[in-house]
């Protein structure tokens, strides 16, 4: 019974069925399943499939946004029920699209996948300046800074941020991604990691946390 409901919840997230996702979350909770299990065994596996399908060009931005919305509303029900230690998650990431860049679709999807995977994500939005990254890292005691760029005219700003973080002695890992970004670019600007897509970004963030720990 619980197993079936969890599977149905994953499917509801995959298909982006918000109402179904809400009612299944409530049902599972009423059946006595801890919030953490509903998250880990129902919602997260669903979002993982969404990430893989997006990576493989089986689904596109609109479908991801619809799934994300279903996930988000269910998560909102669970959040007050998750214990503090569960809610704290695996690590804290400050994420933003660099200064001058306006596309943030890719970054939003990465932020959402990270959040779905248990990270605390502080999304600085678009057009993020280096000062804003530093200020937030300090305030949130973040583990990772994630940067996205979609324009060739703005990707250079990633180096500005990374250099500044290093100069100022921040104990934080950096990861970059976006359409014009490559592994070799990431290496050249001294980033700690490069993610080709949102699925990779989650894996990379986990790796960086384990190195840092």
């Amino acid at each position: 019974m619980i197993e079936t409901l969890l599977k149905e919840l994953s499917l509801a997230v995959i298909d982006g069925k918000q109402n179904e996702s809400i009612s299944l979350t409530n049902k599972l909770f009423e059946a006595g399943l801890p919030a953490k299990d509903i998250l880990d065994k129902g919602l997260l596996p669903g979002m993982e499939v969404v990430g893989v399908r997006f990576r493989d060009n089986i689904i596109f931005v609109p479908q991801v946004l619809i799934s994300a919305r279903a996930m988000k509303t269910s998560l909102a029900i669970l959040e007050p029920l998750l214990s503090k230690s569960d809610a704290k998650g695996v690590g804290t990431i400050v994420i933003g699209t660099v200064k001058g860049d306006v596309h943030d679709i890719g970054k939003n999807i990465v932020a959402m996948m990270l959040r779905s995977s248990g990270f605390t994500v502080i999304d600085l939005g678009i057009d993020t300046k280096v000062e804003k990254f530093m200020e937030t890292v300090k305030k949130e005691n973040a583990d990772i800074v994630g940067m996205s760029a979609l324009l060739t005219t703005t990707m250079g700003y990633m180096k500005v941020v990374i250099d500044k973080l290093k100069d100022e002695g921040f104990d934080v890992k950096t990861m970059v991604g976006g359409a014009p970004i490559s592994k070799s670019f990431a290496d050249q600007i001294g980033a700690d990691g490069y993610a080709k897509n949102a699925s990779d970004a989650v894996k990379l963030a986990k790796d960086l946390i384990s190195i840092k720990a």
């Binding site: 660099v98 200064k99 001058g100 300046k129 324009l151 060739t152 005219t153 703005t154 250079g156 700003y157």
Partner: peptide, 13 residues
Amino acid sequence: GTELQRRGLPSGA
């Protein structure tokens, strides 16, 4: 865009 950059448009401007 790329031509402006070659002529000194700063990253992010």
